[in-house]
């Protein structure tokens, strides 16, 4: 196991990401993102372009070549920042069990 794991000390970095999901991260947030954006191919969140530069839906990569990408038509975005924050929360919860929705959106 790597020495670094996400803890409550990283909530301030999550707050930074929420404030500007498309900005240039500081070193602390970059470390969080390296972890959240890592992991295997199978099940990895991606955006499926519906209209270039305008509209996307969430998707997940399959494990093997030839298998279709899972397309979640019901999770649609018209703003990339919203998409980044949505996936950030999903991954944060998967890593920590903690629901950032409750932490930040209450």
């Amino acid at each position: 196991m790597s020495r670094y794991q996400i803890t409550d000390d990283d909530l301030k970095h999550a707050a930074q990401f929420r404030a500007d999901p498309l900005g240039i991260p500081g070193p602390g947030l970059q470390r969080v993102l390296n972890l959240l954006r890592g992991g295997p191919k199978s099940g990895k969140y991606v955006l499926i372009v519906k209209e270039p530069f305008r509209r996307w839906v969430l998707g997940r990569l399959p494990a093997e070549r030839g298998q279709p990408v899972e397309v979640m038509e019901h999770i649609e975005f018209t703003d990339l920042a919203d998409a980044e924050w949505t996936v950030f929360k999903l991954r944060w919860k998967a890593h920590t069990g903690q629901d950032l929705e409750e932490e930040f959106d209450k």
Binding site: L33, R37, P40, V46, V49, R65, Q67, L80, A83
Partner: peptide, 30 residues
Amino acid sequence: RLGIDIPETEIVAGRLLQLNPVDLFMQTHP
């Protein structure tokens, strides 16, 4: 197949990968 085979592409791009119709085609038509 950088966008569909290589999971590290998101990290080096610094943002969610966007799959276009050609990516979806390549995924099902290797």
